[in-house]
Write a protein that binds this DNA or RNA. Structure first.
Lengths: 285, 285
DNA sequence: CGGTCATTCTCACAAGGCGAGAACCGAAGT
DNA sequence: ACTTCGGTTCTCGCCTTGTGAGAATGACCG
């Protein structure tokens, strides 16, 4: 039972005896040792200060020699570091390099980053830039500041609550009906707050409003106390390839949404132009 | 010869024939499959847009089925994503999560982050916070802005040119002689620019000056056109556990170094106090 | 010098990774 | 509808290589 969360990743080999049948029920993907390596990374990442070899062995319940073998490999490749004086293993700097590459691949051209910075200061609000990537919707760039914090769970990366965010609504509104249906079928419409739109009919109506107004509104549908506005970024063909958004607290929202909407549309247009300029032709959906 | 850089990682199995003896000459660290998984990640990371399975197979020269097996595992663990519509594989969001954990582990308490932000704006310069981690010197936090760019290669993470940076000199000055000798033996004193201190004697003299003045100065020793100032952060026992620094362009440096030095000392003291407050007792060297 | 603890080594076993080839699948092309 | 083609998955023996108990090494503490 100990560490079931982690060892569960393997699906076999725990209770090493296990005599029973346990036929081919394991829909497990191969590369057991690779999976273990990543499970180890996760285990180390989970602790604020890193783990000792013994702790890792316990967490993943593997024998110590195996843990050391993995550790050696991971340290050598700089995905882990060995803090010798405290005999602890912690995450290595290679992971930072990989994250930097990830950011490069998700790709916010510097011109767009500048525009978002401008949006942040002129709009006096946390600013977001979201795009399609594969069949996901991802937040590619965020600009916030201590004074204007972003909505915390809405940082860089994959986002699966498109129906409850302004940028998500923009991108959904731009998808063709089939894709949208597939997308929504995969993600469902979980009710994040009491205000979250959670039926397909309501969502389609909302998306119609978005298409008409050219602006997406989200009122405490993702987080109570925060509301967002978003505008579409279009490629040369007029397809929606991205979205620019800001988040405001509920009070600000009522006072400033009109002005913000103008600013957003302006920014979104400029971003579109910037994208067309940098031949980084953004993938259509 | 193709892709030698990557395949070289394995050290075997390239030219698949290879008949010869090929005894136990490989001082290779174990876990071949794990190494391959990470080599694959690197290969994918290297390309701006990600790679197709076939391209990966070519880059690593492995047979296709093996590549697909690895890909499946990595996609499943979210370290890669499969961009189906372009049949490409690119880096996944798990890498961002790992990097976030790395930042947590390197650990800049938010109080310190605030102080650095303040240093950045009051000093009108890019600000750095560096600490010991294991037997490395790492930049734990950087605050810069379009107006006051950091020195580009000096971002978050492991830094191996301590002798050519202000924060490096501070931390070196605080190490005990034995550790310092070991550290310098490992890293050497590469001449990054014409001004880099590159003999042990000169460096020791410089470190004496640092200890006397309580400030480290670096004048275009790391990058022509940029100079830095650094001050020590001490723990309750008075040991140097970190360093606060700023970079300036050469012109600014001459005009403003006196004022900046005062500001730096002040910030470093406050950081020290903040660290003592948050019981995140920083590891001594 | 007798503990404990972290790390590495040894070695025989067999799990599991390997790779050629074929099969499958969906998307054009004709 | 038939074919072609590229991408992806499956099959199936071979044998590399990962495995784990246990012992050895070595640093450090008392």
């Amino acid at each position: 039972m100990v560490g079931a969360g982690l060892t569960g990743l393997f699906g076999v080999g725990l209770t090493t005896g296990e005599d029973g049948v346990m036929g081919r029920n394991d829909a497990l993907t191969g590369m057991a040792s690779v999976q273990k390596a990543f499970a180890l990374l996760d285990a180390v990442a989970a602790d604020e200060r890193g783990l000792s070899a013994k702790e890792i062995a316990a967490a993943l319940n593997m024998p110590l020699p195996s843990v050391y073998r993995l550790l050696k490999t991971l340290v050598e490749s700089r995905h882990l570091v060995h803090l010798k004086e405290e005999s602890r293993y912690a995450l290595g700097y290679k992971l930072h390099a990989l994250d930097a590459s990830l950011h490069r691949q998700v790709g916010t051209p510097s011109a767009v980053a500048r525009l978002m910075l401008e949006l942040h200061s002129r709009g006096d609000a946390a600013a977001y830039y979201a795009v399609h990537r594969g069949d996901h919707i991802v937040v590619a760039h965020v600009v916030d500041s201590p004074a204007r914090r972003r909505i915390t769970p809405m940082g860089f990366g994959f986002n699966d609550a498109a129906h409850a965010t302004a940028f998500g609504k923009i991108l959904l509104a731009g998808m063709d009906p089939v894709q949208r249906r597939v997308f929504l079928a995969r993600h469902g419409l979980p009710a994040i707050t009491d205000n979250t739109i959670s039926t397909l009919e309501d969502l389609e109506l909302e998306l119609d409003r978005v298409r008409e107004g050219g602006i997406a509104v989200e009122r405490e549908e993702f987080m109570i106390g925060s509301s967002c506005l978003g505008a579409p970024v279009r490629n040369a063909a007029g397809q929606i390839v991205g979205s620019v958004a800001v988040s405001l607290n509920a009070a600000d929202f009522d006072q400033r949404s009109a002005k913000i909407a103008v600013l957003l549309r302006d920014t979104a247009d400029k971003v579109g132009r910037a994208l067309r300029a940098t031949s980084v032709l953004p993938q259509r959906q």
